[in-house]
Write a protein that binds this DNA or RNA. Sequence first.
DNA 1: CGGTCTATTGACTGGCGTCAAGCACCGTGG
DNA 2: CCACGGTGCTTGACGCCAGTCAATAGACCG
Lengths: 255, 255
Amino acid sequence: MNDPANSPASQTTGPSDISPFIRMLQRRDILSEEDIALIERLPMRKVRFQPGEDIVAEGSRPKESCMLLHGLAARSQSVSGGGRQITALHISGDFVDLHAYLLKTMDHSVVAMGPCEVSFVPHTAIRSVTEQSHHLGRLFWLSTVIDGAIQRTWITCLGRRSVEQQIAHLFCELYRRFEAAGAAKDFRFELPLTQAQLADVLGLSIVHVNKKLQQLKTAGLIEWKNSTARILDYDRLASLAEFDPTYLSLQNEPR
Amino acid sequence: MNDPANSPASQTTGPSDISPFIRMLQRRDILSEEDIALIERLPMRKVRFQPGEDIVAEGSRPKESCMLLHGLAARSQSVSGGGRQITALHISGDFVDLHAYLLKTMDHSVVAMGPCEVSFVPHTAIRSVTEQSHHLGRLFWLSTVIDGAIQRTWITCLGRRSVEQQIAHLFCELYRRFEAAGAAKDFRFELPLTQAQLADVLGLSIVHVNKKLQQLKTAGLIEWKNSTARILDYDRLASLAEFDPTYLSLQNEPR
DNA sequence: CGGTCTATTGACTGGCGTCAAGCACCGTGG
DNA sequence: CCACGGTGCTTGACGCCAGTCAATAGACCG
């Protein structure tokens, strides 16, 4: 089940366009010319992945971290019996497994949901940049800390919210994140997930997710077909979910 | 419900003993004399809290972060209807809300479970230390990243494990963390939680937690009374929980 | 045109929440 | 000394939510 596609990931050489990552940082704080130059000089190895492929394997000890330039990726932990739980979703501009720079051993895998374009950055280069710019060091740190804030919110959703609320909350979160990344507007965004993958996010069975999705659709709150999601009534959806975007740290503040 | 005790937190002056924090860092990497000196010179404000008191309030914008010197504390998010979810448990030596240094606004509160002794460290001092020592900067970062790893594991437990497994997993995790902190041995540790608080950790009702605890007790796996927990058969408990301590990063490695 | 993947729907079962009652313990005050 | 209220733990009855099993239909592909 859920085995990665066996076609090898295609590796491309040449310069990567890391502007999604720079824009992500600039939404959080002002970058100096030197900071931007440091990032642009980061050595990178660009790789494309097909849906379902492993980008980083659970249990491995990578020597580089991956930045997602395009697509949707997830962190996934497997459990006995073939099941799995998705613990994070990442979009274009996210420095997905930056934490592995310090953790050394992967306690989960990073998987491509849709087609993904990824840049691998050596840990030695990350170290060098953070030692040359305290400010970039803090922004890298911030990136992992925001991931943690999102994870806390997911814990609360899993533990204390109804399934409708969980789905509604996830749609609100993803929309706000895509919107901030410039990848969504007018309450519409690309969501290349299957219902089975969504079930792995929510910790539920496929059947149940399907039925609850129907309810949200017939209630006129969301649409979702052909990998395109649309929020029909954001205010009602957010109030159903008790969604408060503070945890996403979308405000630009000096760090 | 769950209102903090109305007695004001007692504030003490004088030097704090931050050795629990230093020991925590030393279990993860080697500290130089200079690093230790930098930490010992950190300005601190030591405060005691009674069970149930708020150490840091949800929604606040603290100018200092708190280090837990003694006791058990939790991060808690409240939901409508008076419920709450505990998203993390912290023990002696943990730099509990270090992430607030970068996040600025608290998306959750920090609450004392048992009696707690806390040191507040100004964010300006944290910044100064991380700019004086890249190594300490990485270790501070690491501390927040390990918190994230624990949160991921909790997500997987909430989403994809049975209640027995969740409780078993939590007992294994806490024992290994207490043991590493020197606060537990022989499979015995202090766990000053009520079953209601444990229910808020697991996202379950009090009644159900109680019944599943009985099962683990009658199965001869754990004991827990008078705030003292004991694991009777660690191997069976860990295998029931599918517990793999990798995510706790208990290995000492250069970072 | 068959095979695989995804979405959908129904029937049945079991897990977990809610409500409720009762017990044990403890500190307070008559 | 005992009555008391508060808190935490325990247990049973009942109902709903979510999982499992199963079957069907549509989309895409070889």
